[in-house]
Design a protein around this nucleic acid. Structure first.
Lengths: 251, 251
DNA sequence: CCGATTTTGTTCTCACGTTCACAAGCTCCT
DNA sequence: AGGAGCTTGTGAACGTGAGAACAAAATCGG
């Protein structure tokens, strides 16, 4: 098991019909921008308009869209509804995907209530937890069920996407169970690196990593001139007062 | 303030002392891996060990670390505690960063309770919301305060990082207020593209985008042979639930 | 019907990121 | 002390992504 990562059979990274991964990651953004335009009653938009709404530059947007086909009209722009449907179809959200959420703590709770979740394309079919105290609790119009029922639920509802919102500890175990039950896409909120067999896609959302990236840049801003000369080789003996980072290190 | 000093002076993307953005994004992962090893009582680790723990390959890890300096010992590996401190210092989490969370809905609630948040390096100094019904509510050892107090809080606690967990609507307004108050790094959970002036860093976490990316790959898996020939110009009549798709642009 | 105008789709070039492969350097054993 | 065996740090090759620039195609006005 744990047979290497997921995507990399022989050739490099290239989706079957050739849509680059970077583009795939932006399609949902375009989809949202188009929905917003549509809601504003706008029927046609140029690549420039769309790019602004999506927060990218227009050349990139045009190139991204060109991977899907030629859905625009030169001299005019894109028909908002039409393009929206094409992107939705390409992503696969014209159908509904069944989702289970495992781990109903604070975050699991929040996600279960998150309306924008089922905006379109996704349907939460079960909230699971192993804690007997939580089982049976109602959240919105759903009830927390026993994690032991996982296999039945996955089979019954053809669940292909699992969301892990457990603490770090049980995450790998939960992940293994999900995969064994037949789930082939996992969204992981637990702060651990999960390993999955080939063929299973996994994406990670990690709050503290995001904050740390911000901190890095923040530090650069404030200390622009204060830390150009980094102590390349600080005395190793100074490490004794580093029982735990942040313990006695703080400025 | 807001001295247009962030990233993009003249040359392309290149952090002042030259750490590539992709590497910066992985440093927190290494930091976590090192902490885990440290907690297991492991004092020394090779690049191979670390890479496994962090879920990357060893060559990449070594190159990433080489940007920070030569902190390893050939033939031996890396001293876990030493390297951990070096990375923590580089990221900037040896000091504590003050953080405010704006928007105490489901997600804001969850984040406020998220212990791993203040794991180290970050300190939530205020939970803010504009809803009078929420103000005064206690969450953990904190109390929800009026968003109007933002400026005072930012000044008093030297807040440099703001987390936006409001709905999409008010997000840009909140963002502008944060920036005006002096916040220079923003983590946005609202499903909108925020615009900020130069010098302010912004990162986005978007649940539905992540799910959609998974859906895209999922679709490719199930239909491996079912949809190789994509209807470049599908018959527009099959789209009953798409009121005005393709006014006249379609086939 | 033709030319001016607009905007897409695409080509080309350059920068960035990843991986390979190996020399440099350290430790340990004989 | 010297050589064998590891493991790091890095130079070079390769692949991917971004942006500029332009040719192709559509509309509109005369």
């Amino acid at each position: 098991m744990t047979r290497a990562s997921s995507r990399r059979p022989g050739p490099p990274t290239r989706t079957e019909r050739g849509i680059p991964e970077a583009t795939v990651a932006r399609l949902p953004v375009y989809l949202r921008a188009l929905t917003a335009l549509s809601d504003s009653g706008i029927a046609t938009a140029s690549s420039e308009d769309l790019a602004t709404a999506a927060g990218v530059n227009s050349a990139k947007l045009r190139k991204d869209l060109s991977y899907l086909g030629s859905y625009g009209t030169r001299g005019v722009g894109y028909d908002v509804e039409y393009l929206r449907y094409q992107i939705a179809r390409e992503i696969g959200v014209t159908q509904d995907w069944a989702v289970v959420i495992v781990g109903i703590g604070n975050l699991g709770h929040a996600l279960a209530n998150y309306s924008g979740f089922g905006t379109r394309g996704f349907r939460i079919v079960a909230l699971l937890d192993a804690d007997p105290n939580l089982i049976g609790e109602r959240i919105g119009d759903m009830e927390v069920r026993d994690f032991a029922e996982l296999e039945d639920i996955v089979k019954a509802d053809r669940v292909s996407i699992g969301v892990i919102t457990t603490p770090a500890g049980p995450a790998q175990g939960v992940c293994d169970r999900l995969v064994a039950a037949g789930v082939t896409s996992i969204l992981n909120f637990a702060p651990v690196v999960l390993s999955v067999p080939t063929g299973v896609d996994i994406r990670k959302v990690d709050l503290s990593i995001e904050l740390q990236i911000l901190a890095y840049h923040e530090q650069r801003k404030s200390g622009e001139a204060a830390l150009p000369q980094v102590p390349e080789l600080p005395a190793m003996n100074g490490l004794t007062d580093l029982p735990s980072v942040g313990g006695g290190v703080g400025a």
